[in-house]
Structure formats: structure tokens, C-alpha cells
Design a protein around this nucleic acid. Structure first.
Lengths: 222, 222
DNA sequence: GCAAAAGTGTTAAACTTACACCCATGA
DNA sequence: TCATGGGTGTAAGTTTAACACTTTTGC
């Protein structure tokens, strides 16, 4: 799994430190083997819970999405292993702890990891590209936010993932222009973030895609 | 593999008739098992050649793209089989013939197939959705065309896949507005299609994505 | 000549961008 | 009262959609 979050103004990825050979001590993406009666998606969720120690109901609520399958015959030195990679976008979660095959688990900010075990650098790069692109034409950005969030928080997700800054006024209008992208929380107290005017709270809506797409500024959809 | 082509004004899919149990006689997507030293992508190409009898160099030139992996434990009654599905978009090819495990192979127009073997209806539906979406934000439509094509032919690809009609004038401008989407064939004779003014010939360019995207009319990007 | 398809021109409407401005809060 | 972020307004610039019109072919 390539599990992404936005924390402290940076895109971060969940890594585990390997507790066994091969690649003992190296950092890697969390993952494991599929059991005989499991689908890959079920296995992904189980392994994520085991290796990170996150609460069962936390993991159950995560949005997991299949990325792609890596099947090069030599990608694991022990034997032939075919891996089905998944991507998850999660809100700022409690700190994970190691477990299972993983000695430790932690969030690492974008670009701050040494080379990973196996072909996980490649998988992570693929996942990173996909996440950037998905924000343009889906409503997945809300997955990075807690259940209730302000439009400023949502905008910061886009800015962090894309590495750009967006005009707050225009961003707000684009988001609100797609019915069902976000829904105002009815009688909600407005949230005061320390400074500035308190912001209205929204929940993720039912729409899966903004229309028109929220294209990156000056950007080819890389 | 879900292999699509545009033929006779319809989106068509390549199906093979099973020559063995289970599902003997039923139509299915072409495919097979990965050998011990093969990646899934290499296996896909090999099986496609074996089951359809298409020429080796024809198959070697096809654009194959991984769709997703299906791993439900009960998807094959014989045993546990995990399938890595691929999608291919191909120009109007010579008629295929059966071979390997497949008794017959043929092109079937969209919506004209009976229920397929295994979970192939599901796979095909996923592939169909992906193809429609990919035309919006990639240059993949040229894969449906022969090496040299007219803008009218390219436009008919979009119209067929999306089931809409597009304004020829505006379509031409959008395609030509993205540098590298198509490249004019230098000293090419213009092609006369029986009726109408002869059209200029183009080749697929090097750009992978039109910018801005070629959105479906009045459409959510389903 | 007529129908058909390629290709060019034109214009009104829609959308985007950039930025000015007011509001409500903490310090 | 000032800095900060939320939220609204608006005009200029750009893009798009729709359709009129010319060109070149087969019949």
C-alpha cells in the first residue's frame, strides 16, 4: 500500500522498517501476503492494520484504491512474488506503530526517504503520479480531510499535493459550483483556526468528480 | 485482455470461444496463464498471439495497458486464479482465428454479446468505462487508427466510443491546438474517401495528453 | 448540378483569472 | 488596532459552441 496523508503542510507517505531479511532494516511500503480465501483488497486492509497498529475501525473506514500490479519475475530475491499495489488517501491519523513484519512504522514527508526495499521506489512514484492526477478529475481530495473540514483546509490539500498556490476566492467558487462535491454542515458552529474569520464547515458530498475538472494551474495533467 | 477496436462504425471487442471446461463453448476474453519467468505484460502479449492467430509483429506493435487485477477467491471454479487484466486499443486488424485454448476468436460489436465466462462481464465493463474516460485526457484515440489517418477518421473514433456526435470544425481546432497530438504527413497525397473533399493525412504525434482535455459534450466524465 | 465531407471564418455566450474589497476573529 | 484567513464582487481576457460559408471530390 502507498498510504498518503497531508500533515504539517507536506504530503507524507506511510513507511515501515523491515524486521526481516531481505532488506532488513530498510524502509518499505507496508504490505504482505494474501491468504488463501482472501481477495487482494481484503488482504491489503488486514496487513495495513497489522503493520501499523492503527485501530481496526480506523482502517476499515479508509478509502483504498487499486493502483496496479507488479509482476516482474525478479522483483523479490526470495522467490517469485506478484504484488497488487493499492493507494490510500487518509486524513491526519494517530501516529502508527510497528507490528507484524515491520519493526517500525512512520510518516515520512515527500522526498525525504532513502531508497526503499524491493521495487517500492517505482511503486511509490507511480502512486504519487496517480494521486496528483486524480485530484484534477475526481473529488478524492476530501479523503485527505477529516469528516468535517473548511474550504481552506481542502484548498491546502490541493496546494500541497500539486506544489502550487491557488486563489482562495476562485477555488471556493469552483468547488461550490459542482453540486455534491461538498455539503455544508447544517447547524455547524464555525471553526476558528486561531487567526482570521471563522470558516464554515463542510462534509464530503456524494459527487465523485468535479465538473469541470479542477485543473492544475499552467499545467499539463502530468 | 479486453481488446477494443472501432469497426463498421461500432466499438467492437475481441472475444474467444472456450474450447475446454469450465464454460465450454461460452465466449470469454482472451487470456491465459503467466509462465514462471514472465511478467504479466509479456504473458498477455504471448497469449493474445496464441489465441487469435494474429501475426507476431502485429501483436508486438499493439499498445497494451494494465487495467486492474481481479482476485476474488471464487472467480474461477477450478481453483484460485488471480487475473491481471489488460486493455488494448487497436486499429481495424485482419480477422482473427482461434488457437490455443480458444476454439474461435471474433470481433463482437458493443452490446451484442451474451453473458461471458467467469467474471469477464465485470472486467469488460471496467475496461469499457476506462476507455471512454481515457479518450478525454489522453491521446489514446490514435491507437484505434491506422498509422496514417484523417481527422475525420479520428473524430469518428471519439463519436463511436462516446456515442455522441462532435462538431467537425471545432474538433479539428482542438486536436490541432495541442502541439504533438497529431503530425501532418509531409508530402502525403490527400485521401479521397469516395465522397467529399479529400482529407489531409496525419500520423500520431508524440504528445500523450491533449491540453486542454477533450471533454465529452454535456458530460460528466463518467 | 447535387450531395457529401474537408476545411476556414465569425460571433455571442460562457468561463477563468486576477485582484479589490469587506468581515470576523485572536493577539 | 493590526494581521490573518474567510468570503463576496467584478471587469478584462480567454475559451468554447454553434453555425455560416467556401472548397473539392464522386455520382
Amino acid at each position: 500500500m502507498a498510504v498518503f496523508t497531508v500533515r504539517d503542510g507536506a504530503l507524507q507517505i506511510l513507511l515501515v522498517q523491515r524486521g526481516q531479511e531481505p532488506y532488513l532494516g530498510r524502509w518499505a511500503l507496508p504490505g504482505g501476503f494474501v491468504l488463501p480465501r482472501e481477495s487482494a483488497g481484503v488482504a491489503a486492509r488486514r496487513e495495513l492494520a497489522e503493520e501499523t497498529g492503527l485501530a481496526a475501525d480506523t482502517v476499515a473506514g479508509l478509502h483504498l484504491e487499486q493502483l496496479r500490479t507488479y509482476s516482474d519475475p525478479d522483483r523479490d530475491p526470495r522467490m517469485r512474488v506478484v504484488s497488487v499495489a493499492y493507494t490510500a488517501l487518509v486524513p491526519d491519523l494517530p501516529e502508527p506503530r510497528g507490528g507484524g513484519d515491520a519493526a517500525h512504522a512512520r510518516w515520512v514527508p515527500q522526498g525525504r526517504w532513502e531508497p526503499l526495499a524491493f521495487d517500492h521506489d517505482r511503486i511509490l512514484a507511480d502512486a504519487r503520479t496517480r494521486v496528483g492526477a486524480k485530484l484534477e478529475y475526481t473529488s478524492l481530495a476530501t479523503e485527505f480531510c477529516p469528516p468535517e473540514f473548511t474550504l481552506g483546509e481542502l484548498r491546502r490539500v490541493y496546494e500541497t499535493v500539486w506544489g502550487t498556490s491557488l486563489d482562495p476566492a476562485n477555488f471556493r467558487r469552483k468547488v461550490l459550483a459542482t453540486p455534491g462535491f461538498v455539503a455544508p454542515v447544517p447547524g455547524a458552529a464555525r471553526l476558528t483556526g486561531g487567526r482570521g474569520k471563522p470558516a464554515a464547515l463542510y462534509r464530503a458530498g456524494t459527487a465523485t468528480a468535479p465538473h469541470p475538472p479542477l485543473l492544475r494551474p499552467e499545467g499539463r495533467p502530468a
